[in-house]
Structures are given as structure tokens and as C-alpha cells.
Design a protein around this nucleic acid. Structure first.
Lengths: 239, 239
DNA sequence: CGTCCTATTGACAAATCTCAATGTCTGTGG
DNA sequence: CCACAGACATTGAGATTTGTCAATAGGACG
């Protein structure tokens, strides 16, 4: 049962937000019906021709690069509302491999047709440019975290970021699931997975969080932010 | 002596490349004449209202965030042809501080007017979206480097990236200047500056590079890439 | 030529990685 | 429903790398 973009729960932030009501139907022509994927399923593969962007409707994805030694190197995690594949547009080739972490539903957007649609819908370009700028900004935030702090600080920042992204707002969601393994988190943060585990233990000992398996509960948000040490000043200001 | 955009040496990759010849003059109206700045001069400050993008005509810039402890945290380096400020578009506020590293010449592009111009020049939006995608891609490359462990690997990746950017092509330029201090490199790579120094020494000992002060010469490109360990597979493929 | 700032090098402390052992969860098949 | 195997997570101990503090060396600039 395909769902029209105008009725989508993500419509207020996703592509439909760039369209006037009476024009949204144009969008349905280029978006494939939301499709269900089982977990650990490849969506696209590094090096193959770039054809479409994917939007996470539910579930979660990771992207990774396989280096010469065969290690997976995580480049990103994607939650509902996130758009996957943006960095591959300019090279016309997927720069990484995308894989579901859990059972997920994805919308597929043909990029060529989206670009075509932009010609007749200037607001769509505005929307895209804003989206890109946001992606760069959050990338920098995180980059900044990686380039500075200890394992605990990195993990704290990671959890805070995830907390916000889970809520799909500027609020922190105090309870959320980690869809990815310790290994994945470690790869993303540049830590051995043992170090990641120990960092979790420290955050629990400090009473910043509780955790039961993949379920995280933030007990003391302030303390967690303290650990994170990330300059989120511009974020604070704008919220 | 202001120079028209159509005569600019960067015209083939910069904004003018999005315009038909007879339309380029529209661009001159929104680009302030190239201006000379001395080194260590602030261009814009973290938190102030976002009004313009800057394009590096010559010289080099760094951007950084000052965290709660007062440390400078480098978020990026910008070389000729690079556009500074993209991550600040969506929040309408500069997310970091930009400062010249050396004497530099910069073009200032009023963003509001640029956005206006996009409405009547769809190719300009296409150009912008490609640019953003490229920025995300190089961001990911580097992010990936940071999540690698050793200091030598990080520095090697940094030098390779800089080498390519200096040439403003997909070739590696074997001789180039480092416009920034060891401290800046260290901050960018998440290393103490002493560690950065030692990493330089190791690269010299391994006969990957020669260096005389800020002047770098790549002696053995393959060996340097070996040290870098960065998967540049998609880069290799497309060149 | 001398001063200031930056870069390099050394020694020790602290953090992280690696290897190994143990514990825990998940899904499968009896 | 339970038992079990395989994957994942946690913890420990020693090796390695990096950070920190301090001293020295080298360039840039007046």
C-alpha cells in the first residue's frame, strides 16, 4: 500500500516541505513507494553508479568504506528522516556502502528526476541547499568532537547527537535504542570496541546514563553534556 | 583595480562556471571586489549574523571554534578556490570564526543576493548542489582519516589532501607550502603539537617526504599513501 | 645581532590498543 | 519450552601510543 508523500509523517521536514500543497503530487512520480528491507541488507554498494537517494522512513542504516585491509570503516549512521547518499551526488558514484542495521523502510528518490524537478521548483533547490548546509554543520560538530577528546567524551557526544536525532527535534530524547553494535560505534568514533565498552561503563559509573543492552536512558543530561565537552554553543543559542 | 568574475583565474571552477558567458556580468553585482587582507586577520566571527560567503583567491584561511575552556579548535583550512562559510547558511549565523593564515585575497559574495540570483539561474543551483556534495565527500574522507588511529596515518592523509588541494586538480602536487602552524595541524588532527612534530620526523625518516620549515616535498608518494592508509578507492577509480 | 615565537626532542605519566578470558544475548532446533 | 551454538559485550593485564612538561634548537623580524 504505497503512501503519498503528502500524507507522510516526515512531510514537514522532508522533500514535501519544499512544495506547495497543490504541487506535491509531482513528487510522488519520482519517489518509489516505501519499501521494507530486512536488517543487514545492502542498499547500495561503494563504487556503483549513483542513481538515487534514500530516505529513512523507519529503522536505521549505516554507511561504511571498506579499506585495503578489508576493515569496515563506518562513515555515518542514518535515522528516520535522514537522507542517505548526498555525498555521492557530485561524483555520480556511491562513495560508500549502505546497509540496514535493523528492519527498515526506505523511500527511494531518483536523483536525475529530482534534479529535473528542481528546474521548475526553485523552492526545492532552496530546501536542498539548506539541507546540505545542515549536513555540513553537523559534520563539523562531530568532526570537532573526534579531533579533540577522550573516549568518554567521544561516546558522550555520540549519545547526545543520537538522542537529538532520535527525537527529530532540538530536544534530547532521554530514552532511545542504539541500533548499531559496539563495533560499529567504535569504528565510527575511532576507538577499539573494548574501549567503547569501557567508556560505556564509565558513563554508567558516573551516573550519566543507564543502559540495558541496546536500550539507553539518559539519567543526568547535564553531566553527560559535561562529559561531552563539545562546543554546542551555536546550537544552544538557536534553540 | 577590481577584476570582473569572467576574467578571474578561478572562473572555470568557481561560481562563473554556472553562468552562460553573456550572463556573467550579473554576478559582478553581488560579488564585492577582491580585497587584500593581512595575515592573522579575522574575517568573520563565530555567532555573528551570516551574510556572506568568502572565496579564497590567494593565500589561506583557517576556521575554528573556541570552546568553553578557551581552546581554539580548528574546523577547517581553506585554500585558493575554496568557499568559506557554507556550513553557516542554514542557521543564518556563522558557526565558527574565520581567520587568514597568510596574506590573502578574498572575494565576498552576499548570500542573500546569491540566493536571489539562483531563482533566475537554475544552473547556479545545480552548481551549488554539486559543490555541497563535494564538500560532504571530502569531509567524509577526512572524518574517516581521523577515525584512524595512529598519528603518522593522520598526518600522511592530511599532507596528501593538502597536496591535492594545492594543485587544484586530481593530481598530487609534490612541492607545496604549509600555510599553518604545527599547532593548527595538531588541533585539526586531534593531536598534541609535539605528536605532530614527531609524526613529521617519522615521515622524513621513512623517506616519504622532505621538509624545510614550511616547505614540503613529497619524495615517495606511494610510501606516503601507504602510511595514510586511507581508502581513496573511489578517488582512484574516477581519475 | 638579539629577542620572540615556533618547532623539535627527551622523559615520564596517562590513555588506548591488543590479546585473552569470561559473561550475556539471540535465534535455532530439538 | 529448553538447551545449545554463535555472535556480541564486558572485563582484565600487559604492550604501545600519545599527552604533558621541560629543555633545547631554529627561524623570523626588527
Amino acid at each position: 500500500m504505497p503512501e503519498d508523500c503528502k500524507d507522510c509523517s516526515l512531510a514537514n521536514t522532508c522533500i514535501p516541505s519544499a512544495f506547495a500543497e497543490h504541487n506535491i503530487h509531482k513528487l510522488d512520480k519520482i519517489v518509489s513507494p516505501t519499501k521494507q528491507y530486512p536488517r543487514h541488507r545492502n542498499i547500495y554498494h561503494q563504487g556503483s553508479n549513483f542513481q538515487a537517494l534514500y530516505i529513512v522512513k523507519s529503522g536505521a542504516l549505516k554507511t561504511y568504506i571498506t579499506n585495503s585491509k578489508g576493515d569496515e570503516n563506518i562513515t555515518g549512521f542514518y535515522m528516520p528522516g535522514d537522507i542517505v547518499g548526498l555525498e555521492s551526488i557530485s561524483k555520480r558514484r556511491y562513495l560508500n556502502t549502505a546497509k540496514t542495521l535493523t528492519d527498515s523502510r526506505l523511500c527511494r528518490v531518483n536523483y536525475q528526476e529530482l534534479a529535473e524537478l528542481r528546474k521548475y521548483t526553485p523552492a526545492l533547490s532552496d530546501w536542498a541547499i539548506n539541507l546540505f548546509s545542515l549536513s555540513l554543520a553537523s559534520g563539523q560538530d562531530f568532526f570537532n568532537c573526534l579531533s579533540q577528546h577522550t573516549a568518554v567524551a567521544r561516546l558522550a557526544t555520540f549519545l547526545l547527537t543520537l538522542s537529538k536525532r532520535t527525537s527529530r527535534s532540538d530536544q534530547y530524547q532521554l530514552d532511545f535504542q542504539l541500533p548499531m553494535s559496539r563495533q560499529d560505534i567504535g569504528s565510527y568514533l575511532g576507538l577499539a570496541n573494548e574501549t567503547t565498552s569501557r567508556a560505556f561503563t564509565k558513563l554508567v559509573d558516573k551516573n550519566c546514563i543507564h543502559k540495558m543492552n541496546k536500550e539507553i536512558h539518559i539519567v543526568d543530561l547535564e553531566a553527560l553534556q559535561e562529559c561531552s565537552n563539545l562546543t554546542m554553543e551555536h546550537s544552544k543559542k538557536s534553540y
